[in-house]
Every structure is written in structure tokens, then in C-alpha cells.
Design a protein around this nucleic acid. Structure first.
Length: 270
DNA sequence: ACGGGGGCCTGGCGGC
DNA sequence: TGCCGCCAGGCCCCCG
């Protein structure tokens, strides 16, 4: 469930505690994540100076020397600081030991990813195939309009395609479309330039506000200090089927779109 | 090339 | 009370 704001919140919290330091030891209890956790992680990473913590889409890139630790939380992953020696619990798959503490990777569903890749990680196939960042310059209404021409799928499905645009998952796709007053089922290629401009602005605003709030509280998400974020309290439509729209009072509807639950207000969104 | 759907995996919840 | 089926999320892969 972690989307871009959650991963960015995590990156910000890790940065001051990791930069310039190095892991003493890596302990892997379970290798079976989305990809098998490579043994080179334990042999290569310890002792290396951590130079920077970056984010690309929902991936964390921890640059250590010439190489890079790649982490993706999947749907249920989390990284939390715990005291060295505290007993690992079920689904605590990997420990990154640093000083008197452990940065512990926990992931019940094991959809996450921990990889050790040579170089900066940007040429890793998973990273190289990603679309642009919604919070970087270049993502605007004109880009969205140009890049959606000829696409016949629903705009919500397109927004959630990380090879097209990164960072927008199921929650923020619904929230952004509500903010832009566009129905999730609208065929992407038929959106006018004006509506694309509204949508681009809505995506940026929703993501920026969620980052400012420390990420969503939805489902399993917790920050690296164990405290939940606060965004979901302010959700306009996500998870609110049958409840009144906060703007007009009309009952929020839920449909299934490309296999995902989608929420929208039939009055506000056209 | 494009779009839809299934699979991965587990915990939590609703229904019987 | 217990069990069973369904659902959630991100991403990859396969199919038409």
C-alpha cells in the first residue's frame, strides 16, 4: 500500500540517520521476496559508507560506495528502527544492523523487493523502465495531454501505470481524480487539454499534501519510527462508498476498474 | 502495441 | 464458535 508519499516520508526520516554511516551487518531470515534477496547483500554492503538516500517512484535507492541498495515495500512492507537484540517477529525478514540499533524490514505479503545492484541503480531494469516523477518539472497538463493521446483505457488505470507515470497508486488516483472533478472511467485519450491541466495540478497537490502530512494511514503503513501518517483521515473519496461527498453530499460510489476498487462522486466528477 | 485479467501472499473481516 | 471465501495493495506476466 505504500505509495509515493509514504516512501518519500520514509526517505526523509532515514536520511539523517543513515547518511555518512555504514551498516555493521545484514541478517536475512527470508530471501523469498518479489525477487530472491541476493547473498551479495550480506557480503558487499556492510562497512560501506552510505552516501545518499534517493527515491525513484516507490523505490528507495541507498547509495553505498559505487553500488546501490534497492528497496521496494510492495504492498505490506515497512522499515522500522528497533533496539539491537530485540527478538524478530513473524515476517521480520531482513535486519540492517547499525550501531546499537536495527533497521528491520517487515513484510507479511512478501511483495516487496530488496536488491543489491552494481552502480547507481538507475540502469537496473526495474528502475530504467519507470515513467517520469509527478513532482518533478516536466509533469504538467501539456505532458499529460500529449502522452495520453490515442490511449483508450480509463484515465485512472493510466495514472496507476508506473511505466507511464510513477508514484500514483490506487488511493491517490481516486483522490486526484476527485480533486480534478474527472470521472475515473473517462477514456484517457479523450481528455481535453484543460482537463489534463487540472488533473496534473491535482496529482501534484494531492501528493505534496500527503507528503506534508507524513503519508497515508491506510492499512499497514507506519513510518520508520512506528507512527502512522495522517492523510487518510482527510480522504475525499477513497474507502468512502455510500458516505456523503464532502463537497456536495451525494453518496460516494464504488466501482471496479481494471481490477481495482475506485471511488468517485457522481455529482462532482464528470 | 495495447488493455485486461490473473497471480503472487497474508491477515482481517463478513457471512453462514 | 469456527471455517471459508473474499478483499486489499504494487507489480509482473500472459493472453487475446
Amino acid at each position: 500500500m505504500p505509495e509515493l508519499p509514504e516512501v518519500e516520508s520514509l526517505r526523509l526520516s532515514l536520511e539523517p540517520r543513515l547518511e555518512g554511516r555504514s551498516f555493521d551487518r545484514i541478517i536475512v531470515r527470508e530471501r523469498r521476496l518479489r525477487q530472491s534477496v541476493p547473498v551479495s547483500l550480506e557480503t558487499e554492503l556492510p562497512g560501506r559508507r552510505i552516501d545518499a538516500i534517493a527515491r525513484r517512484g516507490k523505490y528507495l535507492l541507498i547509495h553505498a560506495g559505487a553500488d546501490t541498495l534497492l528497496i521496494h515495500l510492495g504492498m505490506s512492507g515497512s522499515l522500522r528502527w528497533q533496539a539491537l537484540g530485540s527478538a524478530p517477529r513473524r515476517h521480520d525478514h531482513v535486519d540492517f544492523v547499525l550501531g546499537g540499533e536495527v533497521l528491520r524490514y517487515h513484510d507479511p505479503r512478501r511483495f516487496g523487493l530488496i536488491a543489491w545492484c552494481p552502480g547507481t541503480g538507475t540502469d537496473h531494469p526495474l528502475i530504467a523502465s519507470l515513467g517520469p516523477e509527478p513532482l518533478e518539472p516536466g509533469f504538467d497538463g501539456a505532458w499529460l495531454h500529449r502522452m495520453s493521446r490515442g490511449r483508450r483505457l480509463a484515465i485512472k488505470a493510466l495514472l496507476m501505470d508506473s511505466h507511464w507515470l510513477v508514484g500514483v497508486g490506487n488511493i491517490y488516483a481516486s483522490e486526484s481524480l476527485f480533486r480534478a472533478r474527472i470521472r475515473p472511467t473517462t477514456v484517457a485519450g479523450r481528455l481535453s487539454l484543460a482537463r489534463c491541466a487540472r488533473l496534473a495540478e491535482a496529482v501534484r497537490d494531492v501528493l505534496a499534501e500527503a507528503i506534508a502530512a507524513g503519508g497515508s494511514t491506510l492499512r499497514d503503513y507506519v513510518g520508520s519510527d512506528g507512527t502512522p501518517g495522517h492523510f487518510q483521515k482527510g480522504a475525499s473519496v477513497y474507502g468512502r462508498a455510500g458516505e456523503p461527498c464532502r463537497v456536495c453530499g451525494t453518496a460516494i460510489r464504488q466501482i471496479r476498474l481494471a481490477g481495482r476498487a475506485s471511488y468517485w462522486c457522481p455529482h462532482c466528477q464528470r
